[in-house]
């Protein structure tokens, strides 16, 4: 048995140049090309994440449902006690309204908090093997999106139960989910790389996400924020990409409405700027993360 083909000399020999880290020497396109050679690993690892997460729990994959469901129940019950609650003036029951917002939100919050620890929980790999480390946070993003798919089935059941029709407008949810995926990747890259040097990020994550939840129209309507905030503040508000993502997802799936283009476009611009910046930052931090992780 030979592990090296006889034709070694005939294969293309890539030339690698290893130099001190410098932002000027980062070649994002070359790094992306290298990443495509690891597509199999992204697949294998993502499936592995999904499997391992629920492998030894009784309820298994049902946990993906229970997180948004329990929050939905809590908020539905809570708002039924508060008069003038955001449930007013809605075409759909508040439970459906809230759950449709909690779906993309839970994917974001669980995806981001697990991606934050993606590198620090794999120190053995990071310090022993050279591979594109962005794969680690990315697989957590993929797993979070898979959870979103599972949790969506409950939304389907609720829509049947409350007789909320699914219209062709639902196609816009694809755009919302695509933006969610890209935003998660960008945020995950930054947060995981910072976490390597400053563990505060992981500790701050629950607090940040809690505040972020209320800065996003998950439990209330986008129009509530528009009425309450000054135009300048509202401009800042929609710069949070989760605003456009959550609102558009809910409008498309349960409210039979097109997206609010202002919010969605503002979010898209932020994501498109953040994505290359986060990747360059990550690739720069990656060069020396094995020293500090």
């Amino acid at each position: 048995m030979s592990i090296v083909p006889q034709a070694t000399g005939l294969r293309a020999r890539p030339v690698t140049r290893i130099e001190p880290p410098s932002l000027r020497r980062i070649r994002p396109l070359r790094d992306l090309r290298r990443l495509t050679q690891f597509v199999d690993l992204v697949k294998t690892l993502s499936i592995h994440r999904i499997r391992v997460r629920y492998k030894h729990s009784r309820l298994g994959i049902l946990w993906a449902l229970l997180q948004p469901l329990s929050m939905m129940v809590v908020f539905t019950v809570m708002f039924s006690f508060i008069r003038g609650a955001p449930a007013q003036a809605q075409e759909v029951p508040y439970a459906v309204f809230a759950y449709a917002g909690l779906l993309p939100w839970s994917a974001f919050s669980s995806g981001l908090s697990s991606a934050a620890n993606a590198l620090t929980s794999h120190t053995a790999l990071v310090t022993k093997v050279a591979f594109p480390r962005e794969i680690l946070p990315i697989t957590y993003v993929v797993a979070a999106l898979a959870d979103l798919g599972v949790a969506s089935t409950a939304l389907g059941v609720m829509m049947l139960w409350f007789q909320v029709p699914l219209t062709p407008m639902a196609i816009w949810s694809v755009l919302a989910v695509a933006m969610l995926a890209l935003f998660l990747v960008a945020a995950g890259l930054i947060v995981s790389a910072v976490q390597v040097r400053h563990r505060d990020v992981g500790l701050a994550m629950p607090v940040i996400l809690q505040i972020w939840l209320f800065a996003t129209p998950v439990l209330y309507q986008l129009s509530t924020a528009r009425h309450a905030l000054s135009p300048a503040l509202y401009g800042l508000y929609v710069a949070n990409p989760m605003v456009g993502i959550v609102d558009s997802f809910r409008r498309a799936v349960v409210l039979n409405q097109p997206p609010d283009w202002t919010a969605l476009a503002a979010g898209a611009v932020v994501i498109l700027v953040l994505l290359p910046v986060s990747y360059v930052y990550f690739k720069h931090a990656e060069r020396t993360m094995a020293d500090v992780v």
Partner: peptide
């Protein structure tokens, strides 16, 4: 390629 040098360079052919 697990970590980067502080100075100098390595060129690997292959």
């Amino acid at each position: 390629g697990i970590t980067a040098p502080t100075s100098g360079s390595i060129v690997i052919d292959g």
